[in-house]
Design a protein around this nucleic acid. Sequence first.
RNA 1: GUGGCCAUCGUUCAACGGCAGGACAGCGGGUUGUGGUCCCGCUAACGAGGGUUCAACUCCCUCUGGCCACCCCA
Length: 452
Amino acid sequence: MSKIKPEKKNPDRPSSKKIEPFTRLRGMKDILFEEYRYWDIVLEKALDLAKAYGFRKIETPILENQALYERSTGQATDIVSKEMYNFIDKSGEKVALRPEATPGLVRSYIEHGMFNLPQPVRMAWIGPLFRHEKPQTGRLRQFWQFDLEMFGEAGPVADAQIIQIAYHFFRELQIDVQVQINSIGCPDCRAAYLEKLADFYRERGRRAKLCEDCRRRFGKNLLRLLDCKETQCQEIRAEAPQIVDYLDEACREHFIKVLEYLDEVDIPYNLNPFLVRGLDYYNRTIFEIVSADVPQEGEKRQAALGGGGRYDYLVEKMGGRPTPAVGFGAGIERTILKIKEKNIPLKTDAGKIVFIAQLGEQAKRKAMIMFEEMRRAGYNVRQLFVKDNLKSQLEEADRLGALFTVIMGQKEIVDGTALIRDMESGVQEVVDAKKIVCEVEKRFANNGQVNC
RNA sequence: GUGGCCAUCGUUCAACGGCAGGACAGCGGGUUGUGGUCCCGCUAACGAGGGUUCAACUCCCUCUGGCCACCCCA
């Protein structure tokens, strides 16, 4: 009765033209049913951890002022200069799809006067970001990130805690990760270091021996030379001065404390003097979470699963009062990719399922009532009332892994009974329809303790 | 953004310059009040456009998309 076959020919249009269906935009993904099972466990873990460490959820608009990112992330970064989805809206406003979470969160902190809240303010955030890159596995144009930000705390515990959560996030999802950590000091010590570094490369014609990219980067972003993958650059780099040796007293002490706290709570880390991050606003602690099961010797830098650091000057730069801050972001899709790689078992299903099947109009009505009754009583009850034949309904019950199926038919209506079928053994029993909830309960309890 | 590889039913894997085939899934039937096994059947694809050719899914070009490396990043 409910089967509608689509017309082969639509009389409203000339039959010669074939309609091309739409497809997704490049680098965009649909998350379908099976895939969503992974999202469930990842998002749940993220939220649980955030809550446990006192971070509260916040959401910000996907669309923001383009200038917000230009000023925070930095005009010079690739993210802003070549990857941003920006356009002029109908009112002439220059807007951008957010390529990064932190700027919006900083904006929100300032705009809502959150410096008036008890400090630190700890935010948890999950949402989609947009970057117009050439897509690849684990690099999408729309991708999701789990972010934590802590505002108003300058002490090294804040850094350590953020790293601790980041680490636990992956570990508790059974992904083997490494924490790469470094300190890039404050603007003062970094400036002194950069001079040393520039001198180093200028000496002995080292600069000329660099790869093409690095020679170009030399004037633009000196720190970037440190994480070049080319062997010739890495050979030179091995003798380069390291920033940790140029940190001033305060920065050095801060960094040491961060490491000590991490030791205290058994978070393993790798000091990586060459770690640099792509965003302009970081100072002092920076870190990256990388997958540990990719061979390290190849000297190839793996795609990071997450990363973050301290940004004590950003809030002020964005028009707020001086406020220290630390944060981190984890890529949801990359995390899920890792989970799939490792064949980590998904959560086993919700548990004890009862299915309610019906035959005939009157039985259907009765079954609908029973369903509501059982659902409200907290049972894991399923149905397929849109199908009228028993075969389809039992098939569905089987697919769902129901332990029992309650069957209501014309005969049962007349007798005031219901049939309970044990899906494993196929054994069926007739019970009083009025006691159906209790009868199901009794079978779930499996020990006859329940009296109907 | 640069360079390279690739593109067949929903999924996965075949084949061929001349009829596109299997497996899985889906749907229907064997069993019109009974699922899981089995058997039978059906549905369903050459990413798009152009060119070469008697003939193109196959060869060539363009586009689109995917993948890999780089830039960069999550």
